[in-house]
Design a protein around this nucleic acid. Sequence first.
DNA 1: CGAAAATTTTAATCCGGATTAAAATTAGCG
DNA 2: CGCTAATTTTAATCCGGATTAAAATTTTCG
Lengths: 197, 197
Amino acid sequence: MTSANSGATRAFDDKRERLLRAAARCFNEKGYSGTSLKDVAIQLGLTDAAIYYYIAGKQELVYQCYMRAADIGQRMLDQAIDEGGTGFDVARRYLELHVAAHCGDEGPIAIMSEIPSLTPEHREEILARSRVHSRNFEAVLRRGIDDGSLTDCDVRMTGNAIMGAVNWIPKWFHGDPAVAKDAVRTFPEYLMRGLKP
Amino acid sequence: MTSANSGATRAFDDKRERLLRAAARCFNEKGYSGTSLKDVAIQLGLTDAAIYYYIAGKQELVYQCYMRAADIGQRMLDQAIDEGGTGFDVARRYLELHVAAHCGDEGPIAIMSEIPSLTPEHREEILARSRVHSRNFEAVLRRGIDDGSLTDCDVRMTGNAIMGAVNWIPKWFHGDPAVAKDAVRTFPEYLMRGLKP
DNA sequence: CGAAAATTTTAATCCGGATTAAAATTAGCG
DNA sequence: CGCTAATTTTAATCCGGATTAAAATTTTCG
């Protein structure tokens, strides 16, 4: 079977998912240049070369990690929007979900620190998705301002601040459940507090 | 003259400072593995090998960039503390200063994305400084809670959120003065708003 | 069981960029 | 002007880790 995702087995996909998580953990903790494919492989009880059965190379691995991160962010925002409510409600719910994703079972989400070392096509794709996500969140903020549930503010900059706070989480969170609990409680509360009318 | 900083000339120090800024810009924009010493050298109109006249190697270059980032953060916090006032006043002033540093003449401040690829000694030093800075900021928050100028909150987590928002700035700020103006206005305002009693 | 497909390993190769050494150029100064 | 130190370049070398190819092992399933 080719490593492309065409006729992929369940087992294959599972292992690939585990690979992405292991890679995300390594990249977050050891940095991009600091993690060799061997490091990632060891976490799976494999040899470095075996990784190439699941992925085309290191570039591709980072790219997939970032796609996964983008997927999760988007999923959380979509879910929050689906659940409805005021702009405030949606924003708050999104923060709860995304912070929980960072700190919970969703496993480590890769920090997008090495976008520039992607191929131009991959880079553009990731950047485009980031932009879309930011714009979507800004739209939620704008909606909240319109419906009176949020105070008037510069949605671009406020969004930057909030996203930064969330995106930075993997820098200091390393799996301690007690810390996770604090984060899930405090982050949405503090970040939303500054948005109340 | 050795490349150590003992009997360094004014001109030498200036060039070294320019080197650090160029490196910080490269690291922020192209990532660590994505920037070769040649990239940095070109910005200074030099050849890659010439860099070794000013610095021991790439490791050292990252380390110095991070030390510079730590210096700036510390300086801004110290200055805010010196100017006095309530906990609220100090925290707000610190944010104004640090955001302005990120967006202003202080030049690009390196994102600490590659701490793990430092030597163990350098890594420990940088991490220690980060910790101290975080603790100092938390102390400011605690002071504000005590003097009634800030609402009661989990200072550790709230600090994490605020630091994250600030540390993420280089990810989206690329020198546009109009954007800088927005950031300097909006960031302190939004981040402090959530801390009012 | 046994053959074909899937998975992993072993053992090279390969390569870009870091690093080094020595030579060349430039700048300060008696 | 000529000497010395400072600065930069040219031209290797060096090396770790990515990548590849082929072989070995394991799994699947008739």
